[in-house]
C-alpha cells in the first residue's frame, strides 16, 4: 500500500459518502444518473469476485464490502425510495448504457491477462469503470446546472482515479514485476474523460460561481 493508493481509495470513499449525503439530506437524486450508478454496482460486483476466495488484507475486504454495499444502496434508493425516485431525471438520463456493457465485455474477452472466468470479469470491470461516468457527464451536460454536492461527487470520483495513476507510476518504479497495463491504460482513459469536467469545475471554483457546463 502506498500513500497515492490510500488517498485514491479515500477520495473514492468520500465520493460515495457525498453522493449518499446528497440523496439522504436532500431526499432528491436530481442531477444523478441512475445508469452510472447501475454501471458502478456492476463494476464492483464483477471486480470483487475474489472477495471470498483470496484474502489480501482486512482493509481490502472491508473496502470491497463497503463499495459493493454502497453502490447497491444508491441504486436501490434511486429505484425504490418513494420520495427520492420522483426526483430522478428519467428523461435526461437516456444514455444507452447497455452498449457500454457490451463493448466492455467484448473487449474483456479479447484483451485480458488470462483467459479465465475471474480474469475476464476483472478486465470487464476495469473497462466498464472507465466508461461508467459517461451517462453522468451527459446528464450534467444536458441539465446544464450542477448543484454543489453533485459537482463534488464527480470531482472526488475523478480525483480517485487520478491518484491511482500516481500509484501505478510509483509502483512501476518501486516494484520489479509490477505490470498492470490494463488498469493503467483504462485508468488513464477514465481520467481524461473527467478532464473536461475538471476544467469547468475549476473555472466555477475560481470565479466562485455556480458550475455551468456548456450545453
Amino acid at each position: 500500500m502506498n500513500i497515492f493508493r490510500f488517498a485514491g481509495d479515500m477520495t473514492h470513499l468520500i465520493s460515495i459518502l457525498v453522493l449518499l449525503l446528497k440523496i439522504y439530506a436532500t431526499k432528491s437524486c436530481s442531477g444523478i444518473s441512475l445508469k452510472t450508478q447501475e454501471l458502478y454496482a456492476l463494476v464492483f460486483l464483477t471486480r470483487y469476485l475474489d472477495l471470498f476466495t483470496d484474502f489480501i488484507s482486512v482493509y481490502n475486504t472491508i473496502m470491497k464490502l463497503v463499495f459493493i454495499a454502497s453502490s447497491l444502496a444508491v441504486v436501490c434508493c434511486m429505484r425504490m425510495h418513494r420520495v427520492v425516485r420522483r426526483s430522478y431525471d428519467k428523461d435526461l438520463d437516456t444514455f444507452r448504457h447497455y452498449f457500454l456493457i457490451l463493448a466492455s465485455f467484448v473487449l474483456a474477452l479479447l484483451v485480458n491477462e488470462k483467459f479465465t472466468f475471474q480474469e475476464i470479469f476483472w478486465a470487464f470491470s476495469i473497462y466498464l469503470e472507465a466508461l461508467a461516468i459517461l451517462p453522468q457527464l451527459v446528464l450534467l451536460q444536458r441539465s446544464g446546472n450542477v448543484d454543489n454536492l453533485t459537482g463534488q461527487y464527480v470531482f472526488f470520483l475523478g480525483a480517485y482515479r487520478a491518484f491511482y495513476i500516481l500509484n501505478w507510476i510509483y509502483r512501476y518504479f518501486t516494484e520489479q514485476h509490477f505490470s498492470r497495463w490494463i488498469a493503467c491504460v483504462s485508468g488513464l482513459v477514465q481520467t481524461v474523460l473527467y478532464a473536461d469536467f475538471f476544467y469547468y469545475y475549476f473555472i466555477s471554483w475560481k470565479n466562485n460561481a455556480k458550475m455551468q457546463l456548456p450545453a
Binding site: K64, E113, N167
Partner: peptide, 10 residues
C-alpha cells in the same frame, strides 16, 4: 496464485 495474480488494488 502468484503474487502478481492477486489483485491487491480496489
Amino acid at each position: 496464485m502468484e503474487p502478481s495474480d492477486l489483485k491487491d488494488e480496489l
